[in-house]
Design a protein around this nucleic acid. Structure first.
Lengths: 200, 200
DNA sequence: ACAGCGGGTGAGCACTACCTCACCCGCTCA
DNA sequence: TGAGCGGGTGAGGTAGTGCTCACCCGCTGT
């Protein structure tokens, strides 16, 4: 515990832009004191031992395994672990909490919720998203498959179906199927519209 | 185009923490002028029309379909579109660029790369990750399945295998399989170690 | 008229993930 | 000693996705 009632923190490494947002969010709260920032996964153990923060904010995506959380909890029972996951399922939250973490938040969480969670976790309370809004699978725009992307490249070059079929070593009917899916996912209806995007 | 040679920007809505990082990254560059921030997906069209920024930074995950990118490009050919995706595959990058975007970056991108990409995109150059490091599937810690999480909850309550099997309406052998996977993914070797995590 | 392009439907196949269960083994403890 | 717990292997079924191909239709342009 730090002196004047503040909460001491250790921040694991996150992607650059997210880390900036996280740090800014924490710096807005004068009661939060960051001891270490951008700690690489392989240095978490030694930094936890050296700094003994009240709360450590871990990046689940950067860990080798969820079991690492358990390892940190076992080695440093006094440190409250707050795990930030990509978009955790209910099962993933259960898993993280079962490994000894005090909280499991989504990267989609609001800044004020993160600050609240840090304070609660520092006092040993368990925080989990559960709201239902943040967890669960996300609807994501339809993405081209690898094969469809190949067909797209040939279409952009103006190749005919038969040429594409020969180049990909498949039948013309297959090319037509891929092409149709490409058109649908790109929202175009012809080669003409496809080339309009590139030129204009 | 803005007056004093600066680049005017429109920023779509991103998750709170990421948006703070993105905004901070942009504010560090005095040549970048943000006209609108946190623009909701359904307001992108009208805001693009009203503000006519040099560059619009879109959030692919918040769009209904990748085809929306094409729609924006068609409606506002003068606006250079910079799309930020979750962790785009090569096929996804092809798809976004084929829809008329000028750049497709990953959320994992460095702040300085984002600033560079904005400047390049504003001059009509195409920017794509391609480095190979950011694209492609990520190795992610092993996550519990829904069934394994259920077994975990029963294990934490101290239920015996037969009790769990009865509760889940499956055979004891099935419970044993789930339990084994739970142990492996959590890095524990017994009910004892599992309860040690919860108690202290 | 015919070839090429556009869309729709459906089938077969391979691969993967998950769930389910069955066998094997060793250890511990009442 | 036997029941329960620990780990290992493998097999079967289901579901989903992606790739491949086959048929159907209409439109257009030479």
């Amino acid at each position: 515990m730090a002196a004047h009632g503040s909460v001491t923190l250790l921040l694991a490494r996150f992607s650059d832009l997210f880390a900036r947002g996280l740090r800014a969010c924490i710096d807005e709260d004068p009661a939060l004191d960051v001891l270490a920032d951008d700690v690489a996964p392989d240095r978490l153990g030694s930094r936890l031992a050296a700094l003994e923060p009240d709360v450590a904010i871990l990046n689940l995506a950067a860990l080798e395994a969820v079991a690492d959380v358990r390892r940190f909890h076992a080695a440093h029972p006094g440190v409250h672990l707050l795990v930030i996951a990509e978009r955790p399922t209910d099962a993933e939250v259960d898993q993280v909490l079962a490994c000894g973490a005090g909280a499991c938040l989504s990267k989609e969480a609001q800044a004020r919720d993160v600050r609240s969670a840090i304070h609660l976790a520092s006092r040993g309370l368990v925080v989990l998203p559960r709201a239902g809004a943040e967890t669960g699978p996300r609807r994501y725009p339809e993405v081209l498959t690898a094969r469809e992307a190949e067909v797209l490249r040939h279409l952009q070059r103006g190749d005919a179906n038969a040429e594409i079929a020969a180049a990909l070593h498949v039948g013309v009917e297959t090319v037509r199927t891929h092409r149709r899916n490409v058109y649908r996912k790109l929202g175009v209806r012809s080669r003409r519209e496809l080339s309009d995007l590139s030129s204009g």
